[in-house]
Design a protein around this nucleic acid. Structure first.
Length: 948
RNA sequence: GCCCGGGUGGCGGAAUUGGCAGACGCAGGGGAUUCAAAAUCCCCCGACCUUCGGGUCGUGUGGGUUCAAGUCCCACCCCGGGCACCA
């Protein structure tokens, strides 16, 4: 025996042994299909070869992680935190009799692969697949119990075929305001056709040409084409995403100028679903903060549309122009002293007066000789401002249009301005300004010397130079005077409705979803255009529309006057295609846009359910089973874990698609994700030297007076883990030093799932030690023999065991893995102190309890203990209730709320017994010393408090 | 500015309905074992005072309710996140 061997016992649980155990079991699980989850019908009805055969008849549980983007840099230890949590929970639920669906996919379309292709010439697909392979390897080594048959990538042609199919569903649907539901567009067409719904122009449907019919239907579709501005960068010959444009309006890459250009773009009518997206939040088991974020994003506000006539101007049809405003405060209409339109408002051109009217104040003209000049100059100035400028510089600016509008409630003539504090994208892009009750209007009125009329009585001590937003009686408001705000609002709305000058309405901040991207690496939009530019969807049976294999990445130097062109426009042969849509074979132009990255992640949960079906997006029986379609509540994925950065967009878009599919009968639940948890982030310390350069965090040493790197002092920061801060720790490092089970255990022990936490490699050893101690309590380190025997445990130990089981079950259910681990540690510490072999009646449940957390070492111990089937499907231990109560308990005795002594009493002692025992305690008697006892508070089982 | 979270030992964090603050772990200290060290096992570990029995203070700050407050109420400070001229 060599020196080395004598020093380390041959059967110690260390990194080498962990590695052997982990890779061995991973291979065996893979062979047996241990994590194969059976569907109740259709495809994938096969379960595990080494598990129970009745899984598909058990209660279901659908657990999901927000799937990752397969980045080229691979994982660091922060990434899998959520994945481990869901895996532990899934494993726990498998052991409590559930059929658990848990798998993993990749959100693999997106800019980085395209950028990588651009710089290296490697096709995005090749690069993406290599990254997926690497990341899959890193994740597999963690021992995640995923059903790998269900793994998908959004870039798989077989997957994006169905993404395109869903696009077609949405395109071929309209939102019926009567039923508040999406319906097939064919039903709308039928109504037009049989005359039950009048056509927009009044002509009979049959008299419209096919092109005209398409144009009419297009106005109703849930996916529609509209002009929207894009960031066109001629220097790169491409359109850029907002995040690729610098604050100076230049391209992030290359620093070329970027121009805002209108382009025909796909939009999705998510605004139609605003109310349902808002209301159904109540059905969801999500945190209040996420619900609030979604509510704020949707931004529903109730108010009124009010029409102001502008007698001096006419609109496009020659009628007297009418400015419609949206206001949440119709009760303040008597205080409207001017109006403001967004500079881009289409009515502005019709309003501009030929010359400044009498009474125009100097401040209103912007120094221009005529309204037209003033408006032109102001619009130009506004267009030069970046969004950031507009956000940061909130000084009110604007110019008078020379026009006056009539306040419909009192016929007062009020000036009409344009100003950039009114946004085109919200409400009607025009406001009535009521400086008395609005801070922004007050500021503008002060700057432009406009009248201010208060219409709500402020309290006596109110600053007379400030707008008053609060509650109070109406004043200066004719028939509203004296009313509270709510009453005044409804009285005004009634009045406006009666005189035909307005009506109550609702507006949302939510805009329709801009769905087109002018990129290459995304799902092609399955649309062609006829000669009149009407979009037609490619029939479902001809999907998928494959991405063309073009890759001409060389930037094209184009001039400033060039038109925006998506990359697919370069695929000359692909650009056009022949079709026969019933009016003869014709050549059609394909849509050249691709979908945004959100698209693939909007519905992947459905494909997890049934990744193989060719004829249906997901088998209906399986869909209903996994999504819980019979529930009266929202239904959906039972647990969805992911980062809070997707609180709004991803979750809102996915909910929207799901609701459309629900309306059209393709899914059976109202909501996609019943329960949502946002896991916290693992952050890490980073260190900078005196030059301010980051140094390798792993090599920094702590000394008494601070931190040192190669002897020189460094300063410590705290932030995201990553390459740039030189503080990344990879799972591979941890596998090598400790093994996957230790990494899993440490990440789960660090703190509650939803909290950010600092990574500390030096603390990982604590989790390793727990596993070593458990191992040592069950296996002899020198011989490898089990150190378990069949003789019964002591009563105390048995009680500890059952209390542990009880607590661990509760904690696991609540995803409180950190406290579950603490309880297991306590039990194991008791075993360590035992001067006898571990009783089997404790060893068996202990191994079961650790199995969800550290599946490999648990499986190894389970196997060594003589079990022939996998611990993965073993039953989780259940506590014996009679073992949870002690015969005797120690409770504190307080005098005036301070603990002065402790007494040991029978657990079921009543109040009188407790009081007597407390007063009889020698220490208490000594302290009371004959003083008068005024009151004794007894909380059975908890404490006695004596007020003396 | 508005809306959400959150402030507990040197560190990560525990603490049912208001009922023994600091479970569990890391770091630190002491002991056993060892020729020695590592590993392992045992003990201590909020601060201050102490006659070593114990006492006083202590959960961001200041008030309050209560027999009893980390927990409830009021005011404030700090940190993190979201939104931001949304009429």
């Amino acid at each position: 025996m060599t020196e080395q061997q004598r020093e380390t016992p041959a059967h110690r649980y260390d990194a080498q042994l962990a590695d052997t155990i982990e890779t061995t079991w991973q291979a065996r699980w893979k062979d047996a299909g241990t994590y194969h989850t059976p569907n109740p019908a259709g495809s994938l009805t096969e379960g595990p070869a080494d598990g129970p055969t009745d899984l598909a008849t058990r209660p279901k549980l659908f657990i999901m992680d927000m799937f990752p983007y397969p980045s080229g840099t691979g994982l660091h230890v922060g990434h899998p935190l959520g994945f481990i949590s869901t895996d532990v929970y899934a494993r726990f639920k498998r052991m409590t009799g559930h059929n658990v669906l848990h798998t993993m996919g990749f959100d693999a379309f997106g800019l980085p692969a395209e950028e990588h292709a651009r710089s290296t010439g490697v096709h995005p697909r090749e690069n993406t697949e290599a990254n997926i392979a690497n990341m899959s390897r890193q994740l597999a080594r963690l021992g995640l119990g995923h059903d790998d048959r269900r793994a998908i990538a959004t870039t798989d042609v077989a997957y994006y075929r169905w993404t395109q199919w869903i696009f077609n569903q949405i395109f071929n649907a309209w939102f019926d305001p009567e039923t508040q539901k999406a319906r097939p567009i064919s039903e709308l067409e039928a109504e037009f056709s049989d005359g039950s719904r009048p056509t927009p122009g009044g002509r009979p449907w049959a008299e419209l040409s096919i092109s005209e019919q398409r144009a009419v239907l297009h106005e109703y579709r849930l996916a529609y084409v509209s002009e929207a501005p894009v960031n066109w960068c001629p220097g790169l010959g491409t359109v850029l995403a907002n995040e690729e444009v610098t604050a100076e309006g230049r391209s992030d890459r290359g620093n070329y100028p970027v121009f805002r250009r209108p382009l025909k773009q796909w939009m999705m009518r998510i605004t139609a679903y605003a109310d349902r997206l808002l209301d159904d939040l109540d059905l969801l088991d999500w945190t209040d903060s996420i619900k609030t974020m979604q509510r704020n994003w949707i931004g529903r506000s109730e108010g009124a549309h009010i029409d102001f006539r502008v007698p001096t101007a006419s609109d496009e049809t020659g009628e007297v122009a009418t400015i419609q405003v949206f206001t949440t405060r119709p009760d303040t209409l008597f205080g409207a002293t001017y109006m403001v339109l967004a500079p881009e408002h289409e009515l502005v051109d019709h309003l501009i007066a030929d010359a400044w009217p009498d009474g125009t104040k100097d401040a209103w003209t912007g120094g221009a000789p005529s309204p037209a000049d003033a408006v032109a100059a102001y619009r130009h100035a506004t267009s030069q401002k970046s969004d950031l400028d507009r956000q940061e510089n909130k000084t009110k600016t604007g110019v008078f249009t020379g026009a006056y509008a009539i306040n419909p409630v009192n016929d007062t003539s009020i000036p009409v301005f344009i100003a950039d504090y009114v946004l085109m994208g919200y409400g009607t892009g025009a406001i009535m300004a009521v400086p008395g009750q609005d801070e922004r209007d007050w500021e503008f009125a002060e700057a432009f010397d406009l009248d201010i009329i208060r219409t709500v009585q402020p309290p006596a001590d109110w600053d007379e130079n400030a707008a008053f937003i609060g509650e109070g009686p109406a004043i200066n408001s004719g028939f509203l005077d004296g009313m509270a705000i709510a009453d005044a609002k409804s009285a005004m709305i009634d009045h406006l409705t009666e005189i035909g000058a307005g009506e109550g309405t609702v507006t949302t901040k939510l805009r329709d979803w801009l769905f087109a991207r002018q990129r290459y690496w995304g799902e092609p939009i399955p649309i062609v255009f006829d000669d009149d530019g009407n979009p037609i969807s490619i029939p479902d049976d001809q999907l998928p529309v494959n991405l063309p294999e073009l890759i001409d990445w060389a930037p094209r130097q184009l001039d400033e006057d060039s038109q925006p062109e998506p990359p697919l426009g370069r695929a000359d042969e692909w650009k056009t295609i022949e079709f026969d849509f019933g009016d003869g074979t014709t050549t059609y132009a394909r849509d050249l846009n691709v979908m945004p990255q959100w698209a693939g992640s909007c519905w992947y949960y459905l494909r997890y359910i049934d990744p193989e079906s060719d004829d249906v997006v997901a088998d209906p029986t399986s869909e209903k089973y996994w999504m819980g379609g019979d529930d009266a509540d929202a239904g959906g994925v039972d647990l969805y874990v992911g980062g809070v950065e997707h609180a709004v967009l991803h979750l809102l878009y996915a909910r929207f698609w799901h609701k459309v599919l629900f309306d059209l009968g393709h899914v059976t639940t109202k909501e996609p994700f019943k329960r949502l948890i946002n896991q916290g982030y693992i952050q890490a310390y980073a260190f900078k030297d005196e030059r301010g350069i980051y140094v390798e965090a792993a090599e920094v040493e702590e000394s008494g007076d601070g931190y040192r790197f190669e002897g020189a002092p460094v300063s410590r920061e705290y932030g995201k883990m990553g390459k740039s801060l030189k503080n990344a720790v990879t799972p591979d490092d941890m596998y090598e030093q400790y093994g996957a089970d230790t990494l899993r255990l440490y990440e789960m022990f660090m703190g509650p799932i939803d909290q950010d936490r600092p990574w500390e490699t030096k603390s990982v050893v604590g989790s390793m030690r727990l596993l070593q101690r458990i191992w040592r309590n069950l296996v002899d380190e020198d011989t490898g023999e089990l150190t378990i025997d069949a003789s019964p445990a002591s009563d105390d130990l048995r009680r500890s065991l059952h209390k542990t089981i009880d607590a661990v079950r509760t904690d696991m259910d609540a995803l409180s893995f950190n406290t579950a681990i603490a309880r297991i540690t306590e039990l194991n510490n008791e075993l360590t102190k035992l001067d006898r072999p571990t009783p089997e009646e404790v060893a068996d449940p202990l191994v079961r309890m650790i199995a969800p957390l550290v599946p490999h070492v648990a499986e190894e111990l389970w196997n060594r203990m003589g079990n022939e089937t996998s611990v993965v499907y073993a039953e989780f231990p259940t506590a014996d209730p009679s073992m949870l109560v002690d015969d005797e308990i120690e409770i504190p005795v307080q005098i005036k709320g301070k603990v002065r002594s402790r007494i040991t009493v029978p657990a079921d002692a009543d109040d009188a017994t407790l009081e007597a025992a407390a007063l009889a305690d020698p220490r208490i008697q000594e302290l009371i010393d004959g003083a008068e006892i005024r009151k004794v508070i007894v909380v059975p089982g908890r404490l006695v408090n004596i007020i003396a």
